[in-house]
Write a protein that binds this DNA or RNA. Sequence first.
RNA 1: UGGGGUGUGGCCAAGCGGUAAGGCACCGGAUUCUGGUUCCGGCAUUCGGGGGUUCAAAUCCUCCCACCCCAGCCA
Length: 563
Amino acid sequence: MSENENKNPTNFVKQIIEEDIKNRKNDSRVHTRFPPEPNGYLHIGHAKSICLNFGVASEYNGLCNLRFDDTNPTKEEQEYVDSISEDVRWLGFDWEDREYYASNYFQKLYEYAVQLIKAGKAFVCDLTADQMREYRGTLKEPGQDSPYRNRSVEENIDLFERMKNGEFEDGSHTLRAKIDMSSGNINMRDPVFYRIQRSTHHRTGDEWCIYPMYDYAHCVSDSIEGITHSLCTLEFEDHRPLYDWFLDQLNVFHTHQIEFARLNISHAVLSKRKLLQLVQENYVNGWDDPRMLTISGMRRRGYTPASIRKFCERIGVAKADSTVDMALLEYSIREDLNKSAPRVMSVLRPLKIIITNYPEGQTDDLDAINNPEDPGAGTRKVPFSKIIYIERDDFMEDPPKKFFRLAPGREVRLRYAYFITCVDVVKDDNGEVSELHCTYDPETRGGDAPDGRKVKATLHWVSDEHSLEAEVRIYEHLFEKADPDNPKDEADFKSYLNPNSLTVLDGCRVEPSLAGAEPGSRFQFERLGYFSVDSDSSDDKLVFNRTVTLKDTWKKIQKAKKQ
RNA sequence: UGGGGUGUGGCCAAGCGGUAAGGCACCGGAUUCUGGUUCCGGCAUUCGGGGGUUCAAAUCCUCCCACCCCAGCCA
């Protein structure tokens, strides 16, 4: 890693904050918040926001709150607040006792609304949703004032109180801000900020039948919590005038809203709506399906919190719409696991080898290094015997020029074990290679030839008698197309789903040291990739997820040849 | 002339008037008991386009072009 990458990268948000600190704005205090709506699971895009909010807070000796933006009881559930809390914590961030809910402020929000009515800045409107849409105008034409816009303060107060008391039907009345129906910014055309909605809230139960809307609740919540910098995504840019309007009218602490570009990743879909669709229509197996870029999916897949944080640091924070290459995410997890994951040998598609000159019934315990990147990780013993398995891909009967691995008559090294030479190829009735007969050179025990002769390849292997059976789940990109949700595309994003995104390999063989491996633990299967033990794994049956492959130069050469 | 934004290599992204950081990807080459890792080298005479200001412009001005967001009683 270059010296330059280690330097804490700058971005426009930090620049604003640094300027504010310099100018002693808010007494140079920095206080942010991560404000998820508990209506879905967190994904890598949220991780960007989490890292940004908690990151700048800690960098400038400030604080970051976790605040659930729970103003719409029809969509929100406790299940989601639990999963969100777990995910933020897992990512490595601590909000201490500052876990807040917009719903904590419902009473205060109500009182502020009354204050706005008294100031002549809000009115109760009887228009139906359809009527309101007509009065709103269009993008290019101004709207028209509601016929209820000029009700007296007294009448508005009375009506609003009765709304709260449940005297009206859902949707029959709204509380609206009195701003400007001809504004070019539609958000300023007398926006609704309270609606009647009789549904049970996951925290306040049936205490309220009116609920504040985002534009009102969010800015006031920020203000109540003393948030200095309210970071949100670009689509809220034209809500900022309304955000500012409420705080100005209320004359309360004024938080500064700053917008940044949301994250997109190639070969993936990141909107909550689309993720929900994949889950509900069973294109994936739940929110934590390892193919999903949800935090829970990535956790199950084997991603580390550090690798996700590093990824978020690398992609930067800016205002330009962008799509980050999935390769960068994969690089980030490889980089982390290369340093930390214990190495182990596993054979995914076994090809049997009989070492013809190896004594029957003998076992050889060979020393293997646990992690060449970490000398402190020590060594372990790996048993060798007469019958072993190697990867089918590591043998070719008629090898092309650059194939270095095993072939008839050729000698290769078995990692940490012996040099072997292929002397015979046995085929089944279909002409498929069913087993190989090889001889080994006892002099090469440990992997080096005393006479100094070299081999071109080192293969991983596993002993038939000692290895454990395992299921391995191989994942590829969920989408074949780099930009499955291109808005200009006529086709549905689901038509770009990769049919090979999941391949379940049964009958894989793993080395015995993996017995009892805990779910969630991560390993490098030498020469193959990084794998983690799935939550479905048990002592009876080990189940691994492939987190990511190793970089594969051989595969690249093959691909280049085909084209 | 509806409003609000954004355009720097294939993908991100620094740059803030002094002559294009960095990462990923890609292409070499060295080391290697993982075709991994590591290392070394290459990769924008040019910053959406045109004009202008200036000794000097990706940075300032101006016109144009492209793309994104907004018409929920969602967030």
